[in-house]
């Protein structure tokens, strides 16, 4: 049984939620506001909670015990590793894109 690679995080709500939680635990509404502030994307409630359930199932995030109705979520160690690997992979692609644009499409 060989080791599998980290899950593919894509670039949608999953990636945005993990990026937001990388800065610390947040409940649903503060997560929405945070994502809106740094990515300019407003996550609708249904989309947000479907993604939270999926990420929790994947072990990438976990709920934090709270007396408040608003339950905060935080990144797990596995989630942090997966996000870190995803960012590293995306950075390589971005760097390569920039290099090719600069080589072939930069103004003369």
């Amino acid at each position: 049984m060989s080791r599998k690679s980290s899950p593919d995080l894509g670039s949608g709500s999953t990636f945005l939620i993990l990026s937001s939680l990388a800065d610390g635990e947040k409940h649903g509404y503060s997560l929405t506001k945070d994502v809106e502030s740094f990515a300019g994307v407003r996550l609708a409630p249904g989309t947000l909670y479907e993604a939270l359930a999926r990420l929790e199932g994947m072990g990438l995030i976990e709920p934090v015990a709270s007396d408040d109705r608003r339950r905060p979520y935080r990144l797990t160690a596995f989630g942090a590793t997966a996000l870190s690997e995803h960012v590293a992979a995306q950075s390589k692609i971005l760097a390569e894109s920039q290099r090719r644009l600069k080589r072939n499409w930069s103004p003369a």
Partner: peptide
């Protein structure tokens, strides 16, 4: 599972 927190979230929205 999610009702309470989802309702709190919706109220804020």
């Amino acid at each position: 599972r999610y009702g309470e927190e989802f309702q709190a979230h919706l109220e804020a929205e």
